[in-house]
Simulated scan of single mutants.
Amino acid sequence: MSHSILLPRIMEVGGDACQKLPSVLNSLNVKKPLIITDKMMVTLGYVEQIQTILAAVGIKADVFDDTVPEPTDESIEAGVARVQNGDYDSIIALGGGSPIDSAKAIGILGKFGGVIRDYKFPRQVTEEGLPIIAIPTTAGTGSEVTKFTIITDEAANEKLLCVGIAFMPVAAIIDYRLTMSVPARTTADTGIDAMTHAIEAYVSQKRNPYSDQQALAALRLIGPNLQTAYHDGKNEKVREAMMLGSTLAGIAFCNSSVALVHGMSRPIGAFFHVPHGLSNAMLLPAVTEFSIPAAAERYADCAKALGVALQDDAVDSANEKLVQFLKSLNQELKVPTLAEFGAKQEDFEQLVSTMCEQAFASGSPNNNPRVPNPEEMLQLYRSLWATVLSH
């Protein structure tokens, strides 16, 4: 049985990879890029750094810096208008997952029109939008190497998953030096997001031998380095390992899938405005514990790759260590509960049935080794709240 593997056409990986941007644009035969980013990238000087690199070869790059965290259909409208009214031949997506996701949607809507809901999964989006050169500045989402974008429909309070080769960047520039200034909270959230990508890709029902290898390699990089990156953000070696781990995890889930954690995570983000990596972290221990009986050996492999279990540990022992590690990791990395984040229990109770519906509708839960029935998903969401009470 064969498997379709999708990757960016060009990848530059390592310290100072940004310097290769002019040659990447040249090889793609594009000369008028629009940089899509956010205000923080401007403040940190990264936008100016990219513009300076391009100016040295005579390329002037305009900037759209109005993307927002957890992008919405409304937040990308101005970017779509900018593309439609300009004569850009490419997009440089600079930032964390949100600017890159925004750029993917803007590249398609700017060229083909419509609204983002028109492109919602299960539609496979194959149109050729503006070519995107993705430059991630966090070690987390892996968006630079995936065929996905997630945009919230504000009116419906729903995170729309959009899928297809159209959303795969043609080039990815993976320069860990851009992550050196990421604050501890974002380092934790994006790092757990990357770890979740690798675990879910490895246990997914859509897994394959290629995605398995990428997932295990990602876990071997993330496991020993995530806590150090959180506590000591200036450690270059650790930042480099996390950046590569994040990209490999992105390749893994793009060519396998995410599963139940992500399916349940999106509604938490949509209704309570919890950052994506953080909502994954809230769910990961409980969902892992729920799923282990259906894929015990696979989860044990994850525990061993992360370095939290020994290679000769029995399967049950390795999985006990994995669940304990995930729980203690959340405490060490100060992952707040939903209540601590500011959610109200009465709002949660009112919304939890809709959250279950949206989670199932995304398709991701069906990729899980153990697919919950509606009552089990309800219990998993409620266990999140029970954790709140005992935290």
Rank of each mutant, 00 (worst) to 15 (best):
F348A: 03
A270M: 05
A359P: 06
D73L: 00
F290K: 07
I116H: 08
A318F: 06
F253N: 07
F272N: 06
T146C: 01
L378V: 04
G263M: 00
S102T: 03
T196E: 08
F348I: 00
P136T: 11
R220L: 03
F112M: 05
P365H: 04
P372T: 05
F148Y: 13
A309D: 08
M1V: 09
D175F: 13
A218E: 01
C18V: 14
G164F: 03
A166I: 01
T37N: 02
E200S: 00
F348Y: 06
S279H: 11
A81I: 09
E376N: 06
E200F: 03
D313H: 10
L7I: 10
T196Q: 11
Q379W: 12
K104V: 00
E289A: 15
T179V: 10
Q331K: 15
I35H: 06
V13C: 11
V203F: 13
K206R: 14
E375C: 06
L109F: 02
A184V: 10
H391D: 14
E349K: 13
D101A: 05
S362N: 06
A229E: 08
G58H: 09
Y210T: 15
I151N: 02
T126G: 04
Q345I: 15
P33T: 07
D38G: 10
C356R: 13
P99A: 11
L109E: 02
V30F: 02
G95R: 02
D153A: 10
Y230S: 15
S75G: 08
G269S: 14
F290E: 04
R370E: 07
P209I: 07
S265M: 03
S279P: 06
A93T: 00
T337Q: 03
I199V: 15
G96Q: 05
R239Y: 05
E349A: 12
R177F: 15
G58V: 00
Q49C: 14
L384M: 14
R117G: 11
A56P: 07
L6H: 11
G86S: 15
V274G: 05
S75L: 05
A343M: 15
V238C: 08
D212G: 10
G223I: 09
I50A: 04
E154H: 10
Q350W: 00
A270Q: 07
L44T: 09
A156C: 12
L278K: 10
Q379R: 14
I53M: 05
A252M: 08
N85E: 13
G96W: 01
P122F: 01
M180F: 09
L326Y: 01
T141E: 09
I173F: 01
I251D: 05
S383F: 11
M40W: 07
E376L: 07
V115N: 09
T186F: 09
I5M: 08
N368P: 02
V170P: 07
A300L: 06
I173M: 03
P122H: 02
D301K: 09
A252S: 11
L329M: 12
G114M: 01
T190M: 11
H3E: 13
N225R: 13
D65A: 15
S211A: 11
P209L: 06
Y88E: 01
L221H: 03
G250M: 00
D175L: 09
E12N: 12
M1K: 12
E346R: 04
G107F: 02
Q311R: 12
A339E: 13
A361G: 01
K60Q: 13
L28C: 02
Y88F: 13
L333H: 11
W385I: 02
K111S: 04
A139E: 14
K237V: 14
L34M: 12
I108E: 08
M377I: 10
S257A: 11
